[in-house]
Amino acid sequence: MITLYTYKPAFGEPAASPFCTKAIWLLNMSGQDWQREDLADPRKMPNQKLPAIRTDGQLIHDSDNIRSHLEGLGAEFDSGLSDMEKATSRAFIRMAEEHMYFHIVADRWCNDAVWPVIRETYFDSIPKMLRKLITNNLRKSVIQGTQFQGLGRWSDEERLARLEPDLQAILTRLWLGAYLFGDRPTAADASVAAMLTNMRATPGKTLLKTRVAEDEVLCRYIDRVSDALGKQWVTDGSASLCA
């Protein structure tokens, strides 16, 4: 039995992190029996990040490594794709995880109107009297990271303009079928839709959330992927079977 260590559900999504949502969807696609264990503090995990899985005495961190492990067990996330389609799939995954993701971070951590909801949701395990002090220091480091990365130096309007070509690339791929590479979900959908659904789920009202939430094609796509891959993620806070 595989155990997935993940952040708890948040804002109606399987997990507070799109990478954890991706891991949940890959596990569901893989056909492996698995259970989830929700963690609030990732510092004991490799690289101090989630998701991670424990299987056969191994602790495997990072959603890409989880994918590779599941493929080693026989999962075929890109079955039927040509070599050219697999190359394009990898490019879409990198677009989602190395660019689109940081727009979510900026929307949630850098926006003064959104941050209080993020703080109270992500860090509710910290005693209330200490929560602001501890999380404000953490927020400062995240904001500084967005400054180094670059997006934190831009206005919301500038960020949305930079993201728009990515969204158009996704919409163009969806001309071909219900999913990015045809009529069934593949690994690229697990990454791309995880980012889009987290954009749409951000609390409050931001330009990015509005752009995704008001796009009928993107919303139908998000919902299709979630229906196909994410039905069995509900947890009561303890480990729960998601086979």
Rank of each mutant, 00 (worst) to 15 (best):
R131P: 02
N137H: 04
T197M: 11
A16Q: 13
L208N: 06
F181T: 02
R94I: 03
V212N: 03
P116F: 01
D64H: 13
Q144K: 15
V234M: 08
Q232I: 08
A178C: 08
L39Y: 03
D83G: 04
W154M: 12
D107A: 13
D183I: 00
I24K: 10
A239M: 10
K140P: 08
T55F: 01
A194V: 04
L26C: 11
W34E: 04
D227H: 14
M1S: 15
T210Y: 04
M195R: 14
M1C: 14
L81C: 10
Q144W: 10
D156R: 07
P165G: 01
R200L: 12
E157N: 07
H99E: 07
K140R: 13
I60V: 15
R159N: 12
I24N: 07
Y101A: 02
L27H: 06
R153H: 08
R184E: 14
E85F: 07
T206S: 13
V217Y: 09
Y122D: 01
T3P: 13
D189G: 08
L70D: 09
K22F: 06
L133S: 09
P14W: 11
G152D: 04
V114S: 03
Q147D: 09
D64E: 14
D124V: 00
A194D: 11
A187W: 02
N28E: 12
Q58H: 12
W109V: 01
I143E: 14
L229Q: 06
K132N: 10
R43M: 11
A169H: 05
R119I: 00
Q48K: 15
V234A: 05
A213V: 15
Q168M: 05
E37K: 13
G237C: 00
A40M: 02
K231C: 09
D183H: 13
G230R: 03
A52I: 02
A52S: 11
I143V: 12
M84G: 11
L138E: 04
D56P: 05
E13R: 12
L26K: 01
T202N: 08
M100K: 08
K140M: 07
